[in-house]
């Protein structure tokens, strides 16, 4: 019958109206400042820089390769390379950023910087309460504000952090194996050279004799 659907709809909304006063589980919203919903693990807001060890500036993984700066679609990253080098986590001598700024008002949280970083050094943070009264300076964050420990990363994104740690461990193992191999190769080369030298010694006078 005509109008039946309207009455059904009105009954449904009336049920919602009264039910929301009776049963709290009907209410779908979260009263934000007082209560918070748990963030899902893949939540991402803005990038941060990972550091190892205790000193944020010394342990920064970033080697100022500037790949993220070039790949960033809205161009919100600004990096200045250092003049000198220092040892990175696997002992290789690398550059480091003297300036690393991200303009959060420009960043669009795409996560491309994270995907392109070959050093596992830039990751996405979950911090979202970043409101400020200064919309220019307040949203331009430098490397001191960006640096967060690897423990922080393990806390916010445990799965990603463990795979990142594993990748770095593989790199370190590879580097150690290579160093070991180098040492062995060097030793071998030295031994060979020595053996060659030893073998060559008796022969050496011959040309002299020949001449």
């Amino acid at each position: 019958m005509l109008g039946e659907g309207i009455i059904k709809g009105m009954a449904e909304t009336a049920r919602n109206f009264l039910g929301s006063y009776v049963s709290a589980e009907r209410l779908t919203t979260v009263q934000y400042p007082e209560e918070r919903s748990v963030q899902i693990e893949n939540a991402r807001q803005f990038p941060f820089l990972v550091f190892d060890g205790d000193d944020p500036m010394k342990g920064l993984r970033c080697v100022a390769c500037q790949i993220c700066e070039k790949e960033c679609p809205p161009k919100c990253i600004y990096i200045v390379k250092s003049k000198d080098k220092r040892a990175d986590y696997k002992g290789q001598m690398q550059l480091y950023p003297t300036t690393f700024n991200i303009d959060l008002s420009v960043c669009m949280s795409c996560g491309i910087c994270v995907e392109v970083c070959p050093f596992e050094s830039i990751k996405m943070n979950t911090e979202f309460e970043l409101s400020t009264t200064d919309r220019f300076g307040g949203l331009l964050v430098n490397k001191h504000q960006l640096a967060k420990s690897n423990d922080h990363y393990r806390k916010i994104h445990p799965t990603d952090a463990s795979s990142s740690d594993a990748a770095l461990a593989v790199e370190v193992a590879k580097a150690q194996a290579k160093a070991k191999a180098d040492v062995e190769a060097k030793a071998k080369a030295a031994a060979e050279a020595k053996a060659k030298a030893v073998a060559a010694t008796p022969v050496a006078p011959q040309p002299v004799a020949a001449t």
């Binding site: 909304t13 919602n16 109206f17 039910g19 929301s20 006063y21 009907r26 209410l27 779908t28 919203t29 009263q31």
Partner: peptide
């Protein structure tokens, strides 16, 4: 508030 309750939320509070 009424519309909120109809949509199972609190409305302005």
């Amino acid at each position: 508030k009424g519309l909120g309750r109809i949509q199972n939320r609190y409305g302005p509070n």
